[in-house]
Design a protein around this nucleic acid. Sequence first.
RNA 1: CCUGCUGUAGCUCAAUUGGUAGAGCGCUGGAUUGUGGAUCCAGAGGUUGUGGGUUCGAGACCCACCGGUAGGACCA
Length: 496
Amino acid sequence: MSETNRPKARKPKGFRDSFASQSMERQEMIATICDVYSKFGFELLETSCIEYVDALGKFLPDQDQPDAGVFAMKDDLDDQWLALRYDLTAPLARVVAEFGDDLPTPFRRYQHGPVWRREIKPSKDRFREFFQCDFDTVGCETMAADAEVCLVLSEAMRALGIDEFVVRVNNRKVLNGLMASLEITEPAVRLGILRTLDKLDDIRIEGVKQQLGPGRKDKSGSWNEGLHLPYSSINRVVEFLQCKMPTRRETCDAFLEFAAGSPDGVEGVNELKSIEQYLEVSDIAQEFVTFDPSLVRGLEYYTGPVFEIELPFEVKVKGKPKKFGSVAGGGRYDYLVERFTGKKVPATGASIGVDRLLAALSLLQKTKSEASLGPVVVTMMDKEQGLEYQKIVNELRDAGIRSELYLGDRKFKAQMKYADKRNSPVVVIAGSNEFEDGTVTLKNMFLGKALSQEVEDNQAWRKGQPAQSTVKREDLVQSVTDIINQVDLVTQNNQA
RNA sequence: CCUGCUGUAGCUCAAUUGGUAGAGCGCUGGAUUGUGGAUCCAGAGGUUGUGGGUUCGAGACCCACCGGUAGGACCA
């Protein structure tokens, strides 16, 4: 291949490679979350990554652009458009529609895995492939299920060691009630108002007023044209946002004034009240679950209660404090399955964004050990004796010790560097001396590192080699085990 | 997609008003025929994002494109 034709080693924007420690961290987080889901009775489901575009729903792609927002391709087999799933809820709806007769009702499942969105502008915390942990109850009307969503989310946070979080809850019907009381029917305007509510946290009440009225300049200085609502309507929206009270009950009462004229709105408030009753018997403190008028959630398919977990602590982004924000979202969607079957199948659930949470944990410094302990490395001093080294590794592995033979082609010094890079606890050294005496030399890499801090004279530490010992060949396994146990103790103490 | 900032070695960054492209870290080798982490020495590594322009001369100035980044739109 000519030089100019060589492919460039690079990965597509918005995608990531995860090496050992990061991957393990994610796996552990997923396991912790899924344990909670399982404890609440949800069962594991795995579905295919690729779905028919029409099954995924009309929410992202449309007729003219089947690949808008999703990674789509046309299948040669049947000339149909396929796409990578963009969440785990739409595939669930398909599964329920396809296999519903054989499934228990209600159907309670959890699912974790990557989802894909063709973001226009991928960035540091906005990926085109990311991981979600979903749980849903399909086929239930009762608000007990929606209250349960709050319980599950709270418990998942606690299981992860996070005790500063808020599950925000609102109800789409309450928002509909607000729209009715404003006598706004035009979908574009309704959408504009909802978007503006959602931005409350960012743009504050002043920004909301401007956005609903003439418009506003954002932080970057660009002009955002406003909705030009009449003054009375703006006032009403502002009053609605002020419904947020110290307790959930009070918030419900405040909502009621805005919903009074609208059957939909009243129903929404009653649903929230019902959720509140379940929360009360479950001893969920006001600070952990709040009813919040400014919560909207984007997805079109939500029809009732909507949820979001917010991490309220501030992080410094380039010196500026900023709320960490949302790490999970969900809600009730009563029509997703109906799209397939024509039968109304109400469902509710939520999804935790694993990657956002990982980022949060690393900011809270709650992530586990940076680098995990590597394998024991058996160095190859003398290549003629290659089979003897293999026997050593075999013994270690038979004893259940994670170990490997150095398989590179470099000098001894480089082998030590390799072991260091692998974060190896013990290096096994054997050359002509050891083979003649029937011994092996073991080096405690962690002790060696600690001792090296104090040594100043190069000659001294090279000759001394304090962190290593020569033991009888028969004692290999026992001695290696002893050193690993020591290292384990030390690293645990350092972490604590 | 809009706006601003930015692009120099693998990484972090230097380079007076336009005047010979440098350092630290990392990497490789050596001092030490068998020892990672201390110290010293040496080496490799660049068409300064790409293309055009101004100039005797451009890493620097101008234009276009491409990439990164911050904010916004959109999305969650």
